[in-house]
Design a protein around this nucleic acid. Structure first.
Length: 280
DNA sequence: ATGACGATTCAAAATCGA
């Protein structure tokens, strides 16, 4: 099993924060970085600064102003695809094959303020997106193996994915209709929530802290886990560790999300997959 | 209940984020 490290980060404008992306790549050195909210029209991606630090390959799906996703890689990217969820053409997905692994970068709609699909079209869109994602990912997981899905899924599925479960039950990202949908998508796909494989419940994990809390985000720690890494079960077995890179939230003019990183190619290989030295 | 902050956009106030 080859050693590989994958990371995902909602960067909230890749052009504004390209120096932070470069700093992250230099220090943490993942093989592949999935980005969301690039807010970058096609052709304006800051590829030069990425190339200078060894990341020569970029698959992007962007538009002006909003959303936008990308995959940045040290290794060649093959068979780039983009699924047009809900037929909206709003640049929320890109995927490519890296070293034989199908890698997805996905940005699920935020869903607006009011968790009522009849009165809030944005929430209706989010639910429709999640419904489409269920069938789409089931097919993707069956068709491509190995496979990694990374991104800002804008849902904190478990109680330990938010700072206060009871207070957030009626807040978009943690309402039961959303958390049930995301758990259903994961189960139906047969994929594994790799971060929770290494940091099981009830340990709290957050990847996002609101901009509206001023300078006390770390002390108050009112966060949510919105950013996820899922893989097929066999690849998950080879994951050696995960890292929530909280450090970047303390940088000057940070994104409100932090990177989530997973390392594969482990020390721990299950005996039944161990090859010629395995006794049966 | 409200607003707190931050990025983007035919450039001032609106929209989006979550």
């Amino acid at each position: 099993m080859q050693k590989l490290a994958f990371a995902t980060w909602n960067i909230n404008s890749v052009r504004l924060r390209i120096d932070q992306v470069v700093e992250f790549l230099k220090i943490w050195a993942p093989d592949v970085l999935a980005l969301q909210e690039t807010k970058c029209p096609p052709g304006q991606f800051p590829t030069r600064k990425l190339r200078e630090v060894g990341y020569e390959h970029v698959a992007e799906c962007g538009q002006k102003g909003y959303h936008g996703v990308a995959i940045v890689s040290r290794h060649p990217l093959e068979d780039v695809q983009s699924h047009n969820f809900c037929g909206m053409g709003d640049a929320r997905h890109v995927s490519a094959v890296v070293r034989g692994i199908r890698v997805h970068s996905l940005y699920v709609p935020a869903g607006g303020e009011l968790p009522d699909p009849d009165r809030n079209p944005k929430f209706a869109h989010k639910l429709a997106f999640l419904a489409e994602m269920r069938e789409w990912l089931k097919a993707e997981a069956a068709a491509a193996n190995p496979v990694v899905l990374m991104g800002d899924l804008n849902v904190a599925p478990y109680e330990c994915d938010v700072w206060d479960h009871r207070r957030l039950l009626r807040v978009v990202t943690h309402t039961p209709v959303e958390t049930d949908a995301l758990k259903g998508i994961l189960a139906e796909s047969g994929m594994v929530d790799v971060v929770r494989r290494h940091i099981p419940a009830p340990r709290k994990i957050f990847t996002w802290w609101s901009y509206r809390g001023k300078d006390d985000w770390s002390r108050l720690d009112k966060g949510r886990r919105l950013d996820h890494v899922w893989t097929d079960p066999a690849l998950a077995e080879t994951s050696s560790n995960v890292e929530i890179v909280r450090t970047t939230r303390g940088w000057t003019r940070p994104s409100d999300h932090v990177p989530v990183m997973v390392r594969f190619g482990a020390q721990r290989v299950p005996a039944q997959q161990g090859g010629k030295n395995v006794r049966r």
